[in-house]
Amino acid sequence: MSEKFSTVEQHASYGVGRQMGEQLKANSFEGIDIAAVQAGLADAFDGKDSAVSMQDMQIAFTEISQRLQKAQEEAAAAASAEGEAFLADNAKRDGVFTTESGLQYEIITEGNGAKPTYNDTVRTHYHGTFINGDVFDSSVVRDQPAEFPVSGVIAGWTEALQLMPAGSKWKLYVPQHLAYGERGAGASIPPYSALVFEVELLDIL
Rank of each mutant, 00 (worst) to 15 (best):
M1Y: 05
K4S: 11
V8W: 02
A12S: 03
S13N: 13
G15S: 14
M20Y: 11
G21D: 12
Q23Y: 09
K25A: 06
K25P: 04
K25S: 10
S28T: 14
S28W: 14
S28H: 09
E30A: 13
E30N: 13
D33T: 02
A35L: 14
V37F: 14
Q38P: 08
G40S: 13
L41P: 03
L41E: 05
F45Y: 10
K48V: 00
K48Q: 11
D49C: 04
D49H: 00
S50C: 07
A51M: 12
Q55E: 08
Q55H: 06
D56P: 04
M57C: 02
Q58M: 10
T62D: 09
T62P: 04
S65I: 10
K70V: 14
A77N: 07
A77Y: 07
A77E: 15
A81E: 06
E82G: 02
E84M: 05
D94M: 07
F97G: 05
F97H: 09
T98H: 05
E110Y: 00
D120F: 13
V122L: 02
Y126P: 08
G128D: 15
F130V: 05
F130C: 13
V135R: 04
V135P: 00
D137Y: 05
V140T: 12
D143Q: 15
Q144F: 14
A146N: 09
A146W: 15
V150L: 06
I154N: 02
E159V: 00
L161K: 00
W170V: 03
P175N: 04
A179E: 03
G181E: 08
E182G: 08
S188D: 15
I189L: 04
F197S: 05
E200V: 02
D203F: 00
L205H: 10
